[in-house]
C-alpha cells in the first residue's frame, strides 16, 4: 500500500537547485501524497468532532438554538463535574510532579542495585490500561480491603471507610498511573546532565539540597513543564479510573459525556459537555505544544 506513495517526491529531493517551476510542481505533487491519510483523518476524526459541535446546537425536537447549552450549563451536575474534573486533574498533576521528580532524582543520581529494574517496571506501567489501577485500589482501600483489614487486625479500627469513593482516592489512583509520564522526560533530561557538574558543585561546598535547587532543578524545568502539562491533559480526559472506582459523588466531564451519551441517550446534552471538555483540553494541549517546542528549541540552542 505504501509502496506506491513516493513516485516522484523523494527523487526530486537530492537535486540541489531545481528550476523554480519544477520545484513548485514538485511541491504540489509532494503535497498530494499527504492527501490520503489526511482525508481519512478528516473523515473519521475531524468530521465526527464537527458533528458533535453541530449537534450541541440542535435539541431533541430538531430546534436549532442555544437551548441545550442553557439547560446543560445551568444544571448543577455539570458545575459539579467541571469542578471535580479540574480539581482532580490539578491535584493529580501536582502529585505526579512531586512524586515523579523525587523518584527520577533517586533513580538517576542516588542509584541502587536494581534501579534499572525499577525503571523498567515504571516503563511497563505506561503500557497498562488505567482501569487496572482503579481495580487494584478497590482491593487495597475498599471497605473490606487489605488496608482496612490490616488496620482492624492491629486494633486501629477501619480508618479508610469511604476513602475509596472519595475524590482523594481518584487522585491517588491517577498519581499512581500518571507518575511515569512525568518520570520519563525527567529521566531523559537527567541522563543528559554530566556527573562532573554535580561533583564540582559539591566540591564548591554545596550540599545535596542546594545542588538540587540550583543545579538540577533548572535543568529539569523543561522536562517538568512538558511532563506536567501532558499529565494535566491526560488527567483532565481520564475516564477509566473514575469509571472503575465508581464513586457516586465523583462525576467528571468524561463521566458525564458517558452518562448522557451511552446511558440516557441524550446526544445533544452529551455533545455540549463534550464540546466544553474538548475546548478545555485543546487549550491545554496548545500550551503543551508551545512548551514542548520551546524546550526542544532550547535544547538545540544548548548544543549549538
Amino acid at each position: 500500500m505504501t509502496a506506491t506513495l513516493t513516485e516522484s517526491p523523494i527523487a526530486a529531493e537530492p537535486v540541489p537547485v531545481p528550476v523554480r517551476a519544477s520545484k513548485a510542481r514538485g511541491g504540489a505533487s509532494r503535497a498530494l501524497w499527504v492527501l490520503p491519510p489526511l482525508v481519512l483523518a478528516a473523515g473519521f476524526f475531524l468530521y465526527p468532532l464537527a458533528l458533535v459541535v453541530k449537534q450541541s446546537f440542535v435539541d431533541k425536537n430538531e430546534h436549532v438554538g442555544l437551548d441545550v447549552w442553557r439547560d446543560v450549563l445551568n444544571s448543577p451536575s455539570f458545575g459539579d463535574a467541571l469542578w471535580n474534573t479540574v480539581e482532580i486533574a490539578v491535584l493529580s498533576t501536582l502529585g505526579c510532579l512531586v512524586v515523579g521528580f523525587f523518584l527520577a532524582l533517586v533513580l538517576s543520581f542516588v542509584p541502587f542495585p536494581g534501579a534499572r529494574a525499577v525503571g523498567r517496571i515504571v516503563d511497563t506501567v505506561l503500557a497498562f490500561p488505567s482501569f487496572l489501577i482503579a481495580l487494584a485500589f478497590t482491593f487495597l482501600y475498599g471497605t473490606a480491603g487489605v488496608v482496612n483489614a490490616a488496620a482492624d487486625n492491629l486494633g486501629l479500627g477501619e480508618p479508610l471507610v469511604g476513602f475509596l469513593y472519595s475524590p482523594w482516592c481518584v487522585v491517588l489512583a491517577e498519581i499512581t498511573f500518571y507518575t511515569p509520564f512525568v518520570m520519563r522526560p525527567l529521566l531523559a533530561a537527567f541522563a543528559l546532565v554530566p556527573r562532573d557538574r554535580l561533583d564540582v558543585a559539591a566540591s564548591l561546598g554545596a550540599g545535596p539540597l542546594l545542588v538540587i535547587r540550583r543545579v538540577l532543578l533548572p535543568e529539569a524545568w523543561p522536562a517538568l513543564a512538558a511532563g506536567g502539562s501532558l499529565t494535566l491533559l491526560l488527567t483532565l480526559n481520564e475516564f477509566g479510573i473514575v469509571l472503575f472506582i465508581g464513586a457516586k459523588d465523583v462525576t467528571t466531564l468524561p463521566m458525564l459525556v458517558h452518562a448522557k451519551g451511552a446511558v440516557t441517550f441524550d446526544y445533544p446534552g452529551a455533545c455540549v459537555v463534550a464540546v466544553v471538555e474538548v475546548a478545555l483540553s485543546l487549550t491545554l494541549y496548545a500550551v503543551y505544544r508551545f512548551v514542548f517546542s520551546r524546550t526542544g528549541a532550547g535544547r538545540a540552542g544548548l548544543v549549538a
Binding site: 557538574r197 561533583d199 558543585a201 561546598g205 540550583r214 544548548l302
Partner: peptide, 20 residues
C-alpha cells in the same frame, strides 16, 4: 568526608560550568 565539606577547588576536563 563528603566533597562539600573538604574545601577543595576542582577543575575537570569538560569545564562542568552550570549552563543556566
Amino acid at each position: 568526608e563528603p566533597p562539600n565539606k573538604r574545601g577543595i577547588g576542582v577543575v575537570v576536563q569538560n569545564y562542568a560550568l552550570f549552563p543556566h
